[in-house]
Computed example of a mutant assay.
Amino acid sequence: MLEIRPTCENCNVLLPNSSKDAMICTFECTFCKDCVDNILHNVCPNCGGGFTKRPSRPSELLEKYPVSTKVVYRPIDKEMFNELLQKYRDIDSRER
């Protein structure tokens, strides 16, 4: 089951369950759409994978299966990330 993390790992903007701006990679690294599009260019800084829209948990299941409250805030090191970005930016995420 997805954790549904509450914030962007890079900029710490709030990404509640209902957010249409929440993006995740296959390992559930969670970033806002703005960071994915304008800083990360669809390359996860943690695994090199691509991103997809994070689904939301149905409201009637939130009590039984609450979303995570654990904030994962690890702003990217732009210098270190640039190497990964150059390696994967022009390769489709399904072919990395």
Rank of each mutant, 00 (worst) to 15 (best):
I91Q: 05
L85M: 02
H41E: 10
K87A: 12
E9C: 07
K78E: 14
I91Y: 01
K87V: 12
D34E: 12
G49Q: 04
D37R: 12
T30Q: 02
I4L: 15
N38T: 07
N10F: 00
F31S: 06
S19M: 09
L40A: 00
I4T: 01
R5E: 11
R74M: 11
E3A: 15
S68Q: 04
C44Y: 01
L84F: 01
P75G: 04
I76C: 02
K53R: 12
N42R: 09
E9F: 03
E79F: 02
C35Y: 01
C25T: 08
T7G: 10
D90V: 04
R96Q: 05
C32H: 07
N12R: 12
K70R: 15
P6W: 00
I24V: 15
Y73D: 13
S18T: 14
G48T: 03
N42F: 07
K64P: 04
K53L: 14
E63L: 08
K70E: 15
M1P: 12
P55G: 11
N38L: 08
V67L: 09
K87G: 03
N42V: 04
S19I: 06
E95V: 12
D34T: 14
V71C: 12
I4V: 14
R54T: 09
D77P: 06
P58T: 07
L62S: 06
E60A: 13
G49A: 02
T69E: 11
K87N: 07
M23H: 09
C44T: 03
P75A: 03
C35H: 03
V72T: 11
V13R: 14
R96L: 01
Y88D: 03
I4N: 02
V67R: 14
C25W: 04
D77H: 10
I76S: 03
C8Y: 01
G48I: 07
E3Y: 11
K78M: 10
G48P: 04
P45E: 05
E9A: 14
S68Y: 00
P75R: 08
I39S: 05
E3P: 09
N10H: 11
I76L: 08
N46P: 00
D92G: 06
M23G: 08
C29R: 02
C29Y: 02
R89S: 05
R96G: 04
E28A: 02
R89C: 08
M1C: 13
M23I: 07
E28Q: 10
D92L: 11
I39W: 00
I91D: 05
L14M: 15
F31C: 06
F31L: 08
K33Y: 13
N10Q: 07
M23Q: 15
R94H: 10
N10A: 03
I39H: 04
M80C: 10
R89P: 08
F51G: 03
Y88G: 00
D37A: 07
E95Q: 13
L15W: 07
C32T: 04
C44G: 00
S59Q: 14
P58L: 13
N17D: 13
E60W: 15
K20L: 12
G49N: 06
F51A: 09
T7R: 03
S19R: 09
